[in-house]
Design a protein around this nucleic acid. Sequence first.
DNA 1: CTGAAAGCGCTTACAG
DNA 2: CTGAAAGCGCTTACAG
Lengths: 337, 337
Amino acid sequence: MPRATIDDVAARAGVSKGTVSLVYSGKRTISEETRERVLRAAADLDWVPSSRARALATRRSSTIGLVLARDPDVIATDTFFAGFLAGVEAVLSTVDMGVLMQVVPDHDRERDAYRSLARGRVDGVLLLDLEIDDARLDIVRSLSLPAVIVGAHPNPAGLPQAHVDDGRGMVALLDHLIELGHSRIAHVSGPVGYVHARHRLDTFRSSLRERGLDPSLVVEGDFTAQSGRSATAELLAAETPPTAITFANDVMAMAGLSYAQSIGVAVPDDLSVTGFDDSELAAHLTPSLTTVHTDVVAWGRRAAESLLGHIAGDDVADAVLDGPHLVNRNSTGPAAS
Amino acid sequence: MPRATIDDVAARAGVSKGTVSLVYSGKRTISEETRERVLRAAADLDWVPSSRARALATRRSSTIGLVLARDPDVIATDTFFAGFLAGVEAVLSTVDMGVLMQVVPDHDRERDAYRSLARGRVDGVLLLDLEIDDARLDIVRSLSLPAVIVGAHPNPAGLPQAHVDDGRGMVALLDHLIELGHSRIAHVSGPVGYVHARHRLDTFRSSLRERGLDPSLVVEGDFTAQSGRSATAELLAAETPPTAITFANDVMAMAGLSYAQSIGVAVPDDLSVTGFDDSELAAHLTPSLTTVHTDVVAWGRRAAESLLGHIAGDDVADAVLDGPHLVNRNSTGPAAS
DNA sequence: CTGAAAGCGCTTACAG
DNA sequence: CTGAAAGCGCTTACAG
């Protein structure tokens, strides 16, 4: 059977289709009696309003976009994403909106993806993994696509942003290590083209410098276990290796920790190790991983709220979230003397 | 400025809007000259066709749906998902389609999610994590929503399916362990309400039984590191503990392996451990994890192709993918005698 | 090869 | 409190 339309419902309820529409949108008071007749007719005909027709009439698609230009392997090890998305959905579902996701292999396809979204598929987008001089800022501007940046750093772009200051996490980690007596501390960063990775690295350097410590023990990783392992190998092969390594995510830290153990470097006795993310696994390795925790679900919620406000035309202020907070576990200990 | 519409383009090119439409859809031969005029007019006006209007006119939304009813923590540790999605997108992007994702906290919201999708937001859905007597089978049927099951098991439902036989992975693992001389082999399963977890477990039991080995060493986990750890603790506390444990995913295996080491059980000397998934981290722990690998990107591709065929009304056959294949690493070794 | 027009199924001023 | 009608911006038979 062909699906019922608003006309069928209106006819059966003996009202105009405008009235049927109003019953559902609640934009006008409808007499209780009419309301009930309409609802019954809709139920009888098993009718639900078509979101396609509604989208055209309202010029709203009730969808937001999320484009990921990352290697699936990196996304897979990313503990941030799923929780973040759950937070986003929690907000969107209250207003019956959805999120359109796209995973693209490179920046060319990324550009195409935004173009396609801007044809009216979405009402706005969330920008993740901002890069230095990110081309997407121009893209969304030229497409007049409402956008909110999901940042882990101070706002660089003049767009609304929902952010957590990763620098605070880095400082918390360094405070912790310095308190334990460490003075040769290294950092394995993420790709420094990312604003967040760069920000963690910059904070690492400036914090150490402020305290008169050597800020030069840095190796760039790419968030994969593979890179965590090789960066650790490089650092430990030095003449005077660090007594502590801070990694820019948990996965690299777990791989690095494991590598250290495999060559007979005891953690935390000979080497302290810290992660960044607080992934579920991190708590259950031996030793468990000292890291930094952020409420990513709340982050997703705030980002979604900002974007909805921005779409509605509100003047949205940057949302600043709490954290990241230190999670002190067993991979860090007093510096070997 | 208000965005240009097809009427503006038609006027500027001096043709009817039907012709403009046909230039883009390629459904009719258009003279090269007209074509160029239209394209230039569109470029001048910075026009792109509205997908909202197209969706209404064609009764197609060019979107497929994906609903995840899982704890974000579990999704986060799921190495399957990102690669799978990348495969799906690779196929969809060639036909300019997208995927609408929804993460819901429970089965009630899941039902709502499908209902909302069925209002014309998507043309079809992919069903992940099928459960025994899964309510979604009835839901999609009653909503006339084209659906394809992403399965790790023989087809239980009469819907088209793209599947990998996880049972083969389990058999490969057991063959490997038995060859190494193990005879007390345990399994830490996923939630047995899931068809795939149940299928791995059933295969585990029947395979051991066939070879005259004890199939009763089973603990149910939930795919989290926490559960891997506690299940391992339970198994190792037995009077005659197993000499090998097969875990239903890598995360539980990594946590279990780590726990064993922490109580002085050497891996693989005292205990062999296997995972399931081949996550990136698994290769970089010490010891590296013996596990089973599936090409999840290809899986995503095949699932998307099946769904597109199904939406188009084709009679799609089940897609059976290769694997899972054994990845023999260092967490397995000869049984201690 | 091209045009005129109906139609997709809603929403929303405008009138009463 | 409700109705009639225009409009959202495309696609697609139908005609020529």
